[in-house]
Design a binder for these strands. Structure first.
Lengths: 147, 147
DNA sequence: GCAGATGGTCAAGCAGGTTGACTATATGCT
DNA sequence: AGCATATAGTCAACCTGCTTGACCATCTGC
C-alpha cells in the first residue's frame, strides 16, 4: 500500500466519522433535545448500568476533570443524576434519568437515520462488515479523535 | 439494522480515525518535525499545487480566520510561504516550502506505518476495500470531525 | 493503623476555534 | 464607464471545552 493511500484512508475515515457525528447530533436536536455530540457517547457508556466519572473519562478519552464538567452539564439539563456508589464511598455512580433514556433513544434513532443512506448505497451486509472490520481494528480505544 | 448498531458504527469510526490520527502525528514528531494533526491534512491540500486560505478553510471545515491562523503558524515554522496569486490580486497562494515537502513525506510514511497493523490483520485488499467504501460514502466532506 | 493509591472537585490557564468589523480587489449589471 | 455587490484576507475580541496542578476524602495492602 502506497504511503499516500494511507493518508487518504485517514482523511476519509475522519470525514465519514465527522459527517455521521454531525447528522446524529442534528437529529437529536431536531427531536427536541439540546446537546452536543459528546452526550451521545457518554450515554452509550452510561446506559450499561451507569458509570463513575473516572470510567466515563476513560471512555471519552479526556481527563476526569473534563468528564466531571460534562456530568455537571448533563445533571443541569436533567439527563443524568449522581447517586451514592454502592461499596465505595469516594465514588459516585452517574446514572441516566428518564429524560436521559429518552435522549438516548433519540440518539439511536438519529444514528439509524444517519446510517440509512449508507445502507442504501452499500447494502446492509457491507455496512455491517465495515463496522465489524473497524471493530477488529480499534476495539476499545477512546471515542474522541485526537484533535 | 438496529438503532444501537448505528451508534456503535459511529463510535468505532471515531475510535479508528482518532487512533490513526494520533499515530500519524506521533510518527511525524518522531521524525523530527513539530506539528499537530491539522498540519497533515493541510499539507495534503497544499501539495496539489498550493491553495488559498479560503480553499484551505473549506477543506479543513473551519472558518477562514482559523485557516489563516494555521497558515501563520505554518509560515512561522517554515513549512509554507505565501505567494502572490496569479490572476487575483486579493488572494494569496499558500505553497509548501522544501521543508514543508519533507514534512509531508514524513506524514505519508507515518501514515503507512500506522496503517500497517491493519493491513496485517485484515489484508491489503480488505483495507483498500474499506477505504473505497468510505470514499463512496463521504466523498468530499470536510476533514474535521464536528467536535 | 499507617502509607500510598484512587475517586472526585476546585481553580486557573490555555489552545484553537468563532463572530464581527473592516480593507482591497474583483465581478456583474445598467 | 461607473456603481453595487460579492469575495479574499486580516485584525480584534471573545468563548468553549479541555488541561494542568493542588487538594480532600476514602479505600487498600502491609
Amino acid at each position: 500500500m502506497q504511503n499516500s493511500e494511507a493518508l487518504a484512508l485517514t482523511a476519509v475515515l475522519l470525514a465519514a466519522a465527522g459527517e455521521l457525528t454531525q447528522r446524529i447530533n442534528d437529529g437529536v436536536v431536531a427531536r427536541g433535545f439540546e446537546g452536543r455530540p459528546a452526550y451521545g457517547f457518554a450515554f452509550t457508556r452510561l446506559s450499561a448500568g451507569g458509570a463513575t466519572v473516572t470510567e466515563l473519562a476513560a471512555h471519552l478519552g479526556v481527563t476526569k476533570q473534563a468528564a466531571s464538567q460534562l456530568v455537571d452539564e448533563l445533571v443541569r439539563k436533567g439527563y443524568v443524576e449522581r447517586q451514592a456508589h454502592p461499596g465505595d464511598a469516594r465514588a459516585r455512580l452517574v446514572v441516566l434519568t428518564e429524560r436521559g433514556w429518552a435522549c438516548t433513544r433519540a440518539a439511536e434513532e438519529a444514528a439509524a437515520d444517519a446510517v440509512r443512506p449508507w445502507v442504501e448505497l452499500l447494502g446492509e451486509s457491507e455496512v455491517r462488515a465495515l463496522r465489524d472490520q473497524l471493530a477488529r481494528i480499534a476495539p476499545y480505544g477512546p471515542i474522541r479523535p485526537a484533535w
